[in-house]
C-alpha cells in the first residue's frame, strides 16, 4: 500500500535479535540436558515459541506489516494448535 512509508530495519536491531536467538538456543541445549521430566518438553517448546516469535517479528518484518497479515499469521498458528489439541483429545479417549 502507498500510505505506509517503507520501514528500514537497522543493522544493529537485526544483530541484537541474532544474539538473543543464539542465547535462547544455548538455553534450550542446557535446559534439556538436565532432567526435568515432563517440563523439559514444555520448556523447550516455549523457548522455540519465543524464538519463532522473534524471527517472525523482526527477520520477517511482521512487526512493521499491516494488521491483516499479523492476524493471518496468528490464525495459522492458532489453527495448528487447535488441530493438535483435537487430535490428542481423540487419541486419549479412544
Amino acid at each position: 500500500m502507498s500510505n505506509n512509508s517503507p520501514h528500514i530495519t537497522d543493522y544493529k536491531v537485526l544483530a541484537k535479535v541474532l544474539l538473543v536467538l543464539m542465547f535462547l538456543t544455548f538455553v534450550t541445549i542446557e535446559i534439556t540436558s538436565i532432567d526435568l521430566a515432563a517440563f523439559t518438553v514444555t520448556i523447550a517448546l516455549l523457548v522455540a515459541g519465543i524464538k519463532s516469535f522473534l524471527v517472525l517479528s523482526y527477520f520477517m518484518h511482521l512487526k512493521y506489516e499491516n494488521l491483516l497479515l499479523k492476524i493471518l499469521v496468528t490464525m495459522v498458528f492458532v489453527l495448528f494448535i487447535i488441530i493438535v489439541l483435537i487430535t490428542f483429545i481423540d487419541y486419549s479417549f479412544r
Partner: peptide, 26 residues
Amino acid sequence: LENGALYWHLVDLIWIFLFPLMYLIS
C-alpha cells in the same frame, strides 16, 4: 528479495522446532 528472504526465514523457522524435538528432548 523480500519474498526470497521470507522463504529463507521459513526454513529457519522450521529448524527452530525441528532441532529441539529431534535432537534435544530425551
